[in-house]
């Protein structure tokens, strides 16, 4: 099944929603100071993207195009409420940490972008896979950013200390700057830089 593979693998690299299409940045950056909330956020977004794509694709013949944005928002909001209640019930601490950013999954541009660009014109199984792939592409970037920020910012991963204490005795210090919000932007900027240097066809030309 080459089609399945293509739909899931492409968004991880070639058409990554965050670094290539520049969608869904907002929530991506605020939750990446530590690895755990980033993982939870990535999983939530993947679930919402996949299922909203599936539902909208099933409904696509019945939605009048003038009010489709509102219909899409209602579907997405319902899914997000489910996720929010689920997190509150089973992972209360993480849901407190994510605070308003769970709600902001609704306006995550990746979801609306995939609904508009893919689900409205494709079958349900394909849409589901496309949503899954894009969600995973988003999670991938989230996890990479969170990995570096937590490792260098607090010297831990998922809360476990990684940098041995002999380093600290030798004078190593955690880089407090990594925890601050602006560093998330700079880390994503560097990821984009590396990706585009390795794939020159993605480069934009600014000097018109």
């Amino acid at each position: 099944m080459p089609n399945v593979k293509k739909l899931i693998i492409e968004p991880l690299r070639k058409t990554n929603p965050v670094t290539v299409l520049v969608l869904g940045i907002c929530s991506c950056l605020a939750v990446t100071a530590q690895l755990k909330p980033a993982l939870v956020m990535g999983a939530s977004v993947t679930v919402v993207t996949a299922f909203s794509n599936l539902i909208i694709s099933l409904l696509r013949k019945g939605i009048p195009s003038r009010i489709r944005i509102i219909v899409q928002l209602v579907v997405v909001a319902t899914l997000v409420i489910l996720i929010d209640q689920f997190l509150k019930a089973f992972a209360y601490n993480v849901s407190k940490q994510l605070s308003v950013y769970v709600g902001l999954i609704i306006t995550n541009c990746i979801i609306m972008g995939r609904l508009e660009a893919f689900a409205l014109s494709h079958g349900s199984w394909e849409s589901f896979l496309d949503g899954l792939g894009n969600g995973l592409g988003y999670s991938l970037i989230l996890v990479i950013v969170a990995f570096f920020r937590e490792l260098f910012g607090s010297g831990t991963l998922l809360g476990y200390p990684i940098i041995p204490s002999s380093f600290y005795e030798a004078g190593y210090q955690n880089n407090g700057l990594m925890i601050l919000p602006p560093m998330a932007l700079i880390v994503v900027g560097i990821i984009i830089w590396i990706q585009r240097t390795r794939n020159p066809e993605m480069q934009e030309n600014n000097q018109k």
């Binding site: 602006p182 700079i186 900027g189 600014n206």
Partner: peptide, 18 residues
């Protein structure tokens, strides 16, 4: 640098402004 043009540099500038 070529790889940074467009989006990449905007991210980094936003970070610096932040």
């Amino acid at each position: 640098p070529k790889g940074l043009q467009g989006v990449g540099i905007s991210f980094i500038i936003t970070g610096l402004m932040g």
